[in-house]
Each structure stands twice: as C-alpha cells, then as structure tokens.
C-alpha cells in the first residue's frame, strides 16, 4: 500500500522544505535589517562576516545562550507551548504549496509539493487559524499587562483579517474550480489570476500583511505602546520561535500569494522552482519595503478598515466574479 520509495521521497521533500524555509526565514531577517538600513541611509549589519552574512548565525548563538526566563505567576505549560503554536502551523502550511513543476526522476513522477491535498486551500485557512492560539496563549500565560493587551489586540486583528483573506480567495476557487493548490496553479498556466482578480489580490495582500502582524498592522506588538506585545515576557529561544515564526509566515504567505495570484511556479525561460522563489522573494521584498515606509495604524482604523472596507469589497468581488462566470456560462 505504501511504497517505501514514496515515503522516502516524501521525507526527503519534508526535510528539504524545512531546511529551505528555516534558512530563508533566517536570511530574511538579515535581508530585512539590511534593506531597512538602506532605506534609512544606513548600512545595516555588516560586522559578522562580509556584508554581515553570518549575522543570522550570531543571532542564533546569542538567542540560544540567553537565559530561558519565565515570569513569576506565569502559566508554565501554556507559556512553553505558545511559541511552538506560533511557529509550527506556519511551517505546516507549506506542505500543500507546490513550489515547482512535477519532475520525472528515474521514471517516477515526483510532484514538487510535500502533499497535494485536494482541500489544500482549506488546510491553509485552518492552520492559519491555529496560529492565532500562539498569540492568545503567549499573551495570556505571561501574566503581564503588556502581553495580555498585545494578545487581545492580536486576537481581534487576526480573526478579523482571516475573514477578508478567506473571502478574497473565494473568487480564486471559483475560477480554478478546485481547492487543490496544484490545480489552482495549473489553472494559471495561461494567465495569472492577478489579471482576472486584481481587487482580490489587493485584499489578499493587505490581509496577509495583517495576518503576519507586520507594519502597518503591527499593533499586537507595537513597541511604542506595549513594549513588545504578546511576546514581551519571552526571551532566548522561546522569543526567537515567535520571531522566526513571523518570518516563516512571510515566506509561506509569499508562497501562497504566488500560488493563488501570481501563477505559482509558472514563468518563461527560468526553471519553475526559481520562478517560485523569485515570486516569494518579491512578496517578501514588498513586505519589507512597506515596513520601511508606512507608519503603524491606530487600532480603530485597523478594525474599521477590515470590517467596513475589505470584507464588503471582498463580498462584492465574489458577487461580481460569480456574475461574470454565470454570464460566460
């Protein structure tokens, strides 16, 4: 029933994907610091290795050797569990993302995807909901007012923007007529969905920006107001799990944006895997660029924008798409 070679290939893909994502997350941190530096007419990290390329390693050593601190009165198990809850679902989503064209190796069809689920899109929505628990539990378990405030803000924000994000994906499903990500990518072979669905793309990008809790939607960890929000009390490796989780999220959501709207791995001349990476990095660059430009939104503006602008727009977009498909027959 289970072909051992299939299992080995799957394990290999899991390992590969995991390594690549962790490395990308680590270097995304460096890239962000460098890019922010250049935006601000600075140099950014440049002390560890040439151009600071060993900076992620130095950060890792620092974070590993820091004291693992637990505040008095914190809920021990929840406190330990929360960082994992924030990082793991983000990685899990990558299981359903196709990052290249299927290869034929030794006469075997190998999909460039860990698992080609037929409800891949739903799995993504489900896992991104689980990530909310990391924020909620981290803030609650810390026994700190800043952390609690941060997690309350985070909860409201994540749950709200999940709705507009989910609604913005409905037209994609309608166009591709599938929840399976490989089929969604396949449907874009001729023309990317961004062309058919520019509004859905914009809503999706804004929503994932908020899902990542990044500027200008970083109010759950707003430094100027509530220290560091829900991870105020975390230090060392537990803090870095939250931190890395955020960057994994960027990579994963960049991959999803590419998959849903930017034609996945499709592209001329270059190998498909490279096209996929270029698209992911482009989205990541956009995120960093936005961070270097925009100020933080106010909490009421943030909620109003979601509920009064994005969600109705996404609903209208669904209606318009449905009408269009009906007319087209």
């Amino acid at each position: 029933m289970f072909d051992p070679i299939d299992i080995a290939i799957t394990l290999g893909k899991i390992l590969l994907v995991f390594m690549v994502i962790m490395t990308m997350a680590a270097y995304l941190v460096l890239a962000e610091r460098k890019l922010l530096g250049y935006i601000q007419d600075r140099i950014g990290p440049n002390r560890v290795g040439p151009f600071g390329i060993w900076q992620p390693l130095a950060d890792a050593i620092k974070l590993f050797t820091k004291e693992d601190f637990k505040p008095a009165g914190a809920d021990k198990w929840l406190f330990y569990l929360a960082p994992a809850m924030a990082a793991i679902p983000a990685i899990m989503i990558f299981a359903v993302i196709p990052f290249g064209a299927p290869l034929t190796l030794f006469g075997r069809q190998v999909t460039m995807q860990v698992s080609d689920l037929n409800v891949g899109l739903l799995l993504f929505v489900a896992f991104s909901s689980i990530a909310v628990y990391g924020v909620a539990l981290g803030g609650w378990a810390s026994n700190s007012k800043y952390a609690l405030l941060g997690s309350i803000r985070g909860l409201a924000q994540l749950i709200s923007y999940e709705i507009s994000m989910g609604l913005s994906l409905v037209p994609v499903v309608m166009l591709a007529r599938s929840f399976q990500l490989s089929e969604i990518v396949g449907a874009q072979e001729g023309c990317w969905f961004i062309v058919y669905q520019p509004l859905a793309f914009i809503i999706f990008m804004i929503s994932i920006l908020a899902e990542c809790k990044r500027v200008p939607f970083d109010i759950p960890e707003a430094e100027g107001e509530i220290v560091a929000g829900y991870h105020t009390e975390y230090s060392g490796m537990r803090f870095s799990l939250f931190f890395v989780g955020e960057y994994i999220n960027i990579v994963v959501l960049g991959g999803l944006a590419a998959t849903f709207f930017l034609g996945g791995w499709h592209g001329p001349f270059l190998p498909p895997v490279l096209w996929f990476f270029i698209k992911v990095l482009a989205v990541a660059f956009l995120f960093i660029w936005i961070r270097g430009t925009l100020p933080r939104m106010r909490y009421d503006q943030l909620m109003m924008f979601c509920w009064k602008v994005l969600t109705p727009l996404a609903l209208l977009n669904i209606l318009a798409t449905a009408w269009f498909i009906l007319l087209k027959g």
Partner: peptide, 19 residues
C-alpha cells in the same frame, strides 16, 4: 500618499549610506 511614500523609500535604497 502611500505611493509617494513608497517611491521615496525606494529612492533611498540606492542612496549612499551616511553611516
């Protein structure tokens, strides 16, 4: 306003750092 802001930061990426 957002586009102007984005354009400004974009230009600054290529400026010589003052550091």
């Amino acid at each position: 306003a957002i586009v102007i802001g984005m354009w400004t930061t974009w230009k600054h990426i290529f400026r010589r750092p003052v550091t």
